[in-house]
């Protein structure tokens, strides 16, 4: 996609800013008391915001144990996955495009985070036809927006590693996104003032529950299905799909949704759904094989037909035999 059409300034990075962001200073930074942070904030006020490029930021933020410690708050990871960033849809961008604040002091104060909608304006459509307008509308109706005023795009979509959901691996990453909050009470309660529902218990009705969890996205059952196939309308749990035949059927609407993003060559050869299912798994009721069903007609139909034919012959012969015997003045034995 190419929605980042705004003009950007990419000031060159000075060697001093690089050295400031060295590993050693990061370690020190993690331990700095809040007073120093406040002082740094005050010092940096009024100075023009320097926008270092990604490599400078990543010299600290690329470390897995990079954390921010604010007084009274639990440690927050400020780690950015470099590999994920390099492969992400946002790889062309620089940190300063979204994060603006003075980085002149060390440690720098929390960087302002841009709203996704600053770039992804609601009228914009991307290739494939998903309109951000529709996404925004879906989101507004979703249980996420309804239950929490704090909820933002970034709570699900990590802008640093964002990829379009085109590969199978990506599909199954989806559940991790949900579990990030739904399996973490503290994180969940940052957005809603209650405990997250017990997932084990809520899904106990599913036969082979764990297998479902491995192969089905949360979104497949927990989102609405209004065109154009956007899945941002997260439904309240009472409205989640509980109808087995939504997937386990010859035309499984839920499964079709799941594979909507994938377009590759096998489709014409095998038929859209079979091509997907053969890749992934056997789904009772949905994996249909024409040969297998033909075999059923041959085997069961053949047995039934054979019986009917044999019975009819016996009936006809029996009558003929009887007639012959009666004609001859005897009795059939």
């Amino acid at each position: 996609m190419g929605p980042m059409g705004t003009e950007r300034n990419h000031p060159s990075t000075t060697s001093s800013s690089r050295s400031r962001a060295s590993r050693a200073s990061r370690r020190r930074a993690a331990a700095l008391p809040a007073a120093l942070l406040g002082a740094a904030l005050a010092l940096s006020a009024g100075r023009a915001a320097a926008q270092p490029d990604a490599s400078a930021c990543l010299s600290c933020h690329g470390e897995q144990d990079a954390v921010r410690e604010d007084p009274g708050e639990r440690k927050a990871s400020v780690y950015v996955d470099q590999q994920g960033l390099a492969e992400s849809e946002h790889r062309e961008m620089v940190c300063g495009d979204c994060h603006a604040r003075s980085f002149a002091v060390d440690p720098h104060p929390p960087a302002r985070r841009a709203d996704c909608r600053d770039c992804h304006v609601v009228n914009e459509t991307r290739e494939g036809g998903v309109a951000f307008k529709d996404i925004a509308e879906d989101f507004e109706q979703s249980v996420h927006a309804q239950k929490s005023a704090e909820f933002r795009c970034v709570h699900c979509h990590d802008a640093h590693t964002l990829q379009l959901p085109t590969t199978r691996a990506r599909l199954f990453e989806h559940n991790k996104v949900c579990l990030h909050c739904h399996a973490d009470e503290a994180r969940f309660q940052k957005l809603v003032d209650k405990a997250p529902p017990d997932l084990d218990e809520a899904h106990a009705w599913l036969p082979n529950r764990d297998l479902h969890w491995q192969t089905v996205r949360c979104l497949d059952c927990h989102t609405g299905y209004d065109a154009p196939l956007a899945s941002h309308l997260i439904l309240p749990k009472e409205e989640a799909v509980k109808n087995c035949e939504a997937c386990h059927a010859e035309t499984p609407t839920q499964l079709l949704r799941r594979y909507r993003d994938r377009g590759d060559g096998d489709v014409d050869k095998l038929g859209f759904l079979n091509a997907r299912l053969i890749d992934d798994a056997y789904v009772i009721g949905a994996t249909r094989n024409g040969l297998l069903d033909a075999l059923m007609i041959i085997v069961i139909g053949g047995a039934g037909g054979g019986i009917a034919g044999h019975g009819l012959l016996r009936f006809l012969f029996h009558k003929a035999f009887r007639r012959r015997v009666v004609h001859a003045g005897g009795h059939p034995s």
Partner: peptide
């Protein structure tokens, strides 16, 4: 996937069992 051959086999044996049952009923009853 390792499950679909099981399903395939299960279906085919089920068809054979149905045929067996039909013939069994026919012969036993008549």
């Amino acid at each position: 996937g390792g499950v679909w051959p099981m399903a395939l086999g299960h279906s085919i044996v089920a068809y054979a069992s149905c045929a067996f049952l039909f013939v069994h009923l026919y012969l036993a009853l008549t």
